[in-house]
Design a protein around this nucleic acid. Sequence first.
DNA 1: ACTCTCTCTGCAAAGCTTTGCATAGGAGAA
DNA 2: TTCTCCTATGCAAAGCTTTGCAGAGAGAGT
Lengths: 329, 329
Amino acid sequence: MSSTIRDVAAAAGVHISTVSRAFSAPHLVSRETRDRVLEVAERLGYRPNPAARALITGRTHNLGLLVADLANPFFPPLIKAAAGCARERGYHVVVADTDEDPVVEEELVLALARQVDGILLCSPRMTNEAIGRLREEVPLVVVNRVVAGPPVVLMDLAAGVRAAFEHLTALGHRAVVLVTGPRGSWASGEIRRAATAAARSAGVDLTVLGPNPPTQEAGAAAAAGVLRTGATAVLAYNDLVAIGVIEGLVEAGADVPGRISVVGIDDIAPSRMISPGLTTVATPKAAAGRAAVDLLLERGGDGVTARLTLGTELVVRESTAPAPGRPLT
Amino acid sequence: MSSTIRDVAAAAGVHISTVSRAFSAPHLVSRETRDRVLEVAERLGYRPNPAARALITGRTHNLGLLVADLANPFFPPLIKAAAGCARERGYHVVVADTDEDPVVEEELVLALARQVDGILLCSPRMTNEAIGRLREEVPLVVVNRVVAGPPVVLMDLAAGVRAAFEHLTALGHRAVVLVTGPRGSWASGEIRRAATAAARSAGVDLTVLGPNPPTQEAGAAAAAGVLRTGATAVLAYNDLVAIGVIEGLVEAGADVPGRISVVGIDDIAPSRMISPGLTTVATPKAAAGRAAVDLLLERGGDGVTARLTLGTELVVRESTAPAPGRPLT
DNA sequence: ACTCTCTCTGCAAAGCTTTGCATAGGAGAA
DNA sequence: TTCTCCTATGCAAAGCTTTGCAGAGAGAGT
């Protein structure tokens, strides 16, 4: 069926080690021999067996990438960037979906541990302790969460939240609802902390609603509670939830942004498509994916603890407007 | 670092073959021995080395999954379903993004060929000939395209297009524009054929605009051309394009659906979120993912040529309305 | 008591490649 | 010519597991 290094060696009249070197250490082989070997290999359709290679070198040239939910448009850009970056360096990416389940997450890391040279953990839901344990099994890089130990890639959510509050207060809003994300999400905690601080310093009244699943449905379901508070603005855990909130508000007859303004976080693709366009804190998804791969490959998941924080940016669209009865000052 | 089968064998006082069997053929090992081995393995944190296993068995328990564009919301549900289905059977899925590039596509298949037990080719753009060649390297299942040879999973786009035309003609539309997809897309051709046939039999005037990239931007760009035809309805290659068309139309001051109706294909998540909600032909994405994995695993990509066609369904939302000046009959 | 059958375990080869070490041969220097 | 030093190649071990074959021991049947 598929030819092995022996076939090539025989056909080229050299020892298998020469064939091996022609591929992985060309400078050790004379030019003519190398050309001949490569030509024969080409003709025979020879491709080194990755399993044998991995067995002896201990490197698979694969990277694992765990995400909570592939269907969340937040992840694809990150994955694309990571995969592209990995590909440039001769690595493939194994993507797995954990379904927001910490148990599945841990199982998957363990299952992948020996098949990959490292794993990117995106927005992991498992405990810090579990991450520490797993780190001994396989090099890890964590995205979107603070953990002691492995290199970490973060997005500056606090700055984004502050910008959102500045935007809202400039529009005259004095009562804001924060619709949080799921328990165990670092981002959700970070957003909450930043929102609390920003609200206090701006003298804004903040109501926290949560925890919630990070889905559009959960957002829609939260809309009633939002209205009950009488607030004039909402900050949501992410765009999916924000879109759900808008849906729920509109459903309940509350005009957005006339009666109430909505701000999301992430800037996923659909946020541009919906109407009103969603004002949101844009996160550097592609940059995070690339950075995570860099960290994993360059430091091998070890080395000094690196903590990389990437900037965020408020994108103002149509879902925010002056607070009702409070014309823009 | 990580323990091998020898460590476990030594610690349990048995031969390595017994350890191996305790894992992969438990019925061949006495109950007490097995328990002891398993307990020792657990204590030592032993996990079989997949590379060594793959080397000797020739099976990796990995599946490849190639998609044209991960960021297209069409794919995530398919991938999720495929990965879930694979996981249940002890397989992992390696996802790769081809960036709509036939060359990258072919390279990726070749690169993955020895690392996986089979590859799912979703909406491939490469030539039939290339698929035939690659089929000799690795078991293949093709999704969303007709190819002789490998098992194929299709969605009944023709039926969906017919349903869309029935819906439009019932609303009084007599002039329809078809905004096609990229060259090399089987689906685009299929849609065009079905649309041409449906238009003829319904006495509807059909204008074909394309080829176009399968993106929102392309849709928006096509809007001007659509308006120029004077048609009262549009059928787009997919929802992304349809959403772009709506955007472009609204931008140009044409009311949707008042002046012109728009129908998409796929029913991706954002289609529910936008306003007006997109009328679209829903395709069975998850079912296709599962079916493709089934086919790959059960038939090993060989066996009788299977061609599985899954049903589609027209979902009517708010982007379609009676043709202007032609009240519903 | 003997043989036959089974069940369980051990032995060793095989799978494909990489890589440290050894060697052969040639070129250059003395 | 002889010795030294390189370069290019070969040799063989190692990496970890699976699996066909064989053997040991126990239990059963006669």
